[in-house]
Every structure is written in C-alpha cells, then in structure tokens.
C-alpha cells in the first residue's frame, strides 16, 4: 500500500494574507482547534461549572467571551458555548471537554469549520461600521456576538476596542468574507486619505 499523508490547508490559501492597508492589517489566526459544547437537558449550570474549572474562569454571559489567545470560550446560545484554542497548546481539546463534562453535554468538534481572521490597527470602528449592524463603538474587550457581514453569519469578537477584532467566518464563506473585509479596509483608507 502506498503511503498517503494528508496535509491541512487554510480556506484562505491563495488569498493575500496578511493584507496591510494604510496602517491596518487583516491576517488569519491559524492553527486553531474549535469545539462546540451544548449542555444536555437541565444541565446548563453543571456544565458551566465544569467548563469554568477547565478554563479557569466562569463561563461568559450572553454576548460575551472569556479567555485569551490560548483558549477562548464564546457564548453561542442558551447552554451552548464554542471553545477556540491554539491546537498546539490544547491537543485533544474535544476529548478533554468530553471528559470534563462527563456525559452532561454534547461535545462536537468543529475544527476548521470556522476561519478566524484578525483585524488590527487604529480606529477599527470606521471599518466595522460599514460591515456589521452591531454597535461596535459600544463593544468592550470580551464582547462577542454573531452578526451578519454581507449576508454571512460570522462571529465578531472585540479583543481590544478600536484596535483588534477577530472575525470568525464559516469556512466555505471565508474568501467572500475576507474580500468584504478587505474592501471595507480600502474604503476606510480612501476616506481617511481625503482628510475630512
């Protein structure tokens, strides 16, 4: 039997990434493991407690996320969370979550179901206000919400208000979302160059 090996490939392969536009940068946050956790009936609180032990912090409220670049946990629905972690630092994350929730939750690996893009720079709100109906100027670090960007349901995470935001796009839409974000960056840059 011939030895066939599989190599992973980013959804943004072939796109200009990172993309720098007038002091702002759009880049991919690669190497992430993602796992959905949905509490089983009447186990919301118990599951939240166990996840808190694993994460070292209480689970986030609706519209929030906790953690850092190593492990982040987003609230995605009543009794539902999405864990996003650096795969190298959290190998076997799904198994870990299954073990820790011990039958009280449905754990579903989502690896690479989402493509994570980081937008960094100054005054990101002038870019984001062209993209999402969310009030990004009112978002603080740790605010995270699903929102439509050009007809695509993405997650928007406020990492540092006005300076760093993460956008998680469903994998199949990644290039379209990247294109929309790049367009908004260019439009904002053009506007700023006018010096109004």
């Amino acid at each position: 039997m011939v030895d066939h090996r599989l190599a992973p490939r980013s959804a943004l392969a072939g796109q200009t990434s990172p993309l720098a536009v007038a002091g702002r940068v759009l880049s991919e946050v690669a190497g992430l493991a993602m796992v959905s956790v949905a509490a089983r009936s009447a186990e919301d609180a118990a599951v939240a407690d166990r996840l808190a032990v694993l994460a070292g912090a209480p689970m986030p409220e609706p519209g929030r996320c906790i953690g850092d670049a190593s492990l982040r946990i987003l609230w995605t629905g009543p009794g539902q969370w999405l864990a996003i972690a650096r795969a190298s630092e959290w190998p076997g994350l799904a198994a870990m979550l299954r073990d820790s929730t011990d039958g009280k939750a449905s754990v579903v690996p989502q690896d690479d179901g989402w493509t994570c893009m980081a937008m960094e720079g100054h005054d990101l709100d002038t870019v984001l206000e062209r993209l999402t109906p969310l009030d990004t100027r009112a978002m603080e670090a740790g605010h995270a919400s699903r929102t439509p960007i050009h007809h695509v349901g993405v997650f928007l995470l406020c990492i540092e208000p006005g300076r760093c935001a993460h956008i998680l796009a469903p994998r199949s839409y990644a290039r379209s979302v990247h294109h929309a974000l790049a367009d908004a960056l260019r439009a904002s840059a053009a506007l700023e160059s006018m010096g109004t």
Binding site: R40, S41, Q80, V108, Q110, D111, D112, W114, R171
Partner: peptide, 11 residues
C-alpha cells in the same frame, strides 16, 4: 426532549 443540535456542514 433531551437533544442538542450542532450544524457541522462546514466542519
């Protein structure tokens, strides 16, 4: 019913 749904089309 005790049932949870997660869309995995993309994954």
């Amino acid at each position: 019913l005790d049932v949870q749904l997660v869309s995995t089309t993309e994954a």
